[in-house]
Simulated assay, not measured.
Amino acid sequence: MDNTKILVTAASTPVGRSIVEQLVSIGVPVRALTRDPQQADLLAGAEVVAGDLNDPASLAAAVEDMDGVFVLAMGAGVPELIEAAKNAGVKRVVFQSTAEIDDDADQQPNDVAVVHHGIEQAIIGSGMQWTFLRLDINSADALQWAFDVPGQLAVGDVVRGPYADAAGSPIHPADLAAIAVVALTQDGHSGQRYHVTGPQSLTHREQIELIGKTHGRELRYEQSDPAAARAEIAPHAPADLLFATWEAHLDKAAPVTDAIERVTGRTPRSMREWAEAHPA
């Protein structure tokens, strides 16, 4: 798409920030939507604007003159954003969705799938070109945000959490951003649902040990009581889905797909590369 202009929602999240950086690096005009532009600390090459997916009134101006939009389901106003984008003449939408969706089911399997499936259907109904990046929950740094691994490692060499042998396939945020950038700026991806994971299945224990080896630390994963851990994270994360996924992968590998390499043309970044980029 020549002269493409892209709106990135949730621009201060790791994936959103990386999308902004990658678009700026290839010379694509980008507008970064964030709740607090003064605190966002985004690249000077991006146009940073205030907006909130929980405040639909702030969204119409954000999509004005845009050709493409990256959407992350981080607020109740996503349907209003889609409607505003359609009315503004936006041509292309890339949505970070979930692999929990079952396209053949009459009823979606859980609340996460229900929300994302509803957004997918609204995007399809808008008539805009669309690409869905369906991310596995155990590829989405769930261990990091559910149990604050950086915070635990800041005060010691032990990470406490449930199910040391549960497997995930963590994806580097820059890789998820890269596939979004391709879908936003290149033809051939309209109508695609990409199942996106990281490049390797690793248990919780293996992930923490790998982080330790990368930084020369003797780190270990200490298994906590699952019931207590569930109660701790339930107010802040989709605990039922997380625990069901971890329990299902206690004795089998996590899914690994080739979507990143197939779409971007480059080998996905490893867990070691993620650790090297996060010295804390």
Results as ranks from 00 to 15, higher is better:
residue 54 N to C: 10
residue 127 G to F: 05
residue 207 Q to A: 09
residue 210 L to H: 11
residue 100 E to P: 03
residue 206 E to P: 02
residue 119 I to Y: 01
residue 190 S to T: 14
residue 280 A to H: 10
residue 51 G to F: 01
residue 181 V to D: 08
residue 124 I to L: 12
residue 195 H to P: 13
residue 94 V to W: 00
residue 24 V to S: 06
residue 222 E to P: 03
residue 3 N to C: 09
residue 229 A to S: 06
residue 60 A to L: 05
residue 110 N to K: 08
residue 44 A to V: 12
residue 258 D to I: 12
residue 232 E to V: 07
residue 238 P to A: 09
residue 229 A to R: 01
residue 114 V to C: 05
residue 252 K to E: 15
residue 204 H to F: 11
residue 103 D to R: 14
residue 46 A to E: 04
residue 122 A to C: 14
residue 163 Y to E: 06
residue 97 S to W: 00
residue 157 D to E: 11
residue 96 Q to D: 07
residue 64 E to T: 15
residue 205 R to S: 13
residue 135 L to Q: 09
residue 46 A to K: 02
residue 82 I to T: 03
residue 174 A to P: 04
residue 93 V to I: 11
residue 198 G to T: 09
residue 53 L to V: 08
residue 233 I to Y: 02
residue 11 A to H: 03
residue 51 G to C: 08
residue 83 E to W: 02
residue 169 S to Y: 07
residue 19 I to Q: 01
residue 234 A to S: 02
residue 180 A to I: 07
residue 3 N to V: 12
residue 228 A to M: 04
residue 249 H to G: 05
residue 155 V to S: 08
residue 223 Q to I: 11
residue 200 Q to H: 08
residue 250 L to Y: 01
residue 154 A to H: 08
residue 87 N to V: 04
residue 221 Y to Q: 00
residue 239 A to M: 05
residue 240 D to A: 15
residue 38 Q to I: 07
residue 6 I to N: 04
residue 116 H to G: 03
residue 260 I to F: 01
residue 1 M to V: 11
residue 69 V to M: 06
residue 222 E to M: 06
residue 273 E to L: 11
residue 265 G to T: 12
residue 174 A to W: 02
residue 222 E to Q: 13
residue 57 A to I: 07
residue 268 P to V: 15
residue 206 E to K: 05
residue 181 V to R: 01
residue 123 I to P: 00
residue 43 L to K: 10
residue 122 A to M: 15
residue 202 L to R: 03
residue 221 Y to I: 02
residue 120 E to N: 09
residue 205 R to A: 14
residue 49 V to I: 14
residue 59 L to I: 05
residue 54 N to H: 07
residue 254 A to H: 02
residue 92 R to D: 11
residue 274 W to R: 11
residue 149 V to I: 11
residue 166 A to T: 13
residue 69 V to A: 06
residue 20 V to K: 00
residue 152 Q to L: 13
residue 106 D to Q: 14
residue 205 R to P: 02
residue 82 I to A: 01
residue 158 V to G: 10
residue 251 D to E: 14
residue 15 V to L: 04
residue 140 A to R: 06
residue 58 S to A: 13
residue 52 D to R: 05
residue 154 A to S: 14
residue 76 A to F: 06
residue 71 V to P: 00
residue 34 T to P: 02
residue 149 V to S: 04
residue 176 L to K: 03
residue 15 V to S: 06
residue 165 D to I: 10
residue 190 S to M: 15
residue 212 G to E: 01
residue 108 Q to S: 14
residue 229 A to T: 01
residue 279 P to G: 15
residue 14 P to Y: 04
residue 164 A to T: 10
residue 99 A to W: 00
residue 79 P to T: 08
residue 110 N to M: 06
residue 7 L to I: 06
residue 253 A to M: 15
residue 128 M to N: 14
residue 239 A to Q: 02
residue 270 S to C: 11
residue 204 H to V: 08
residue 139 S to M: 12
residue 146 A to V: 09
residue 277 A to S: 12
residue 11 A to C: 08
residue 233 I to G: 01
residue 80 E to A: 09
residue 189 H to C: 13
residue 111 D to K: 10
residue 187 D to L: 15
residue 163 Y to V: 11
residue 15 V to F: 00
residue 140 A to G: 15
residue 25 S to T: 05
residue 219 L to S: 07
residue 96 Q to R: 09
residue 160 R to D: 13
residue 151 G to Q: 12
residue 179 I to T: 05
residue 201 S to D: 12
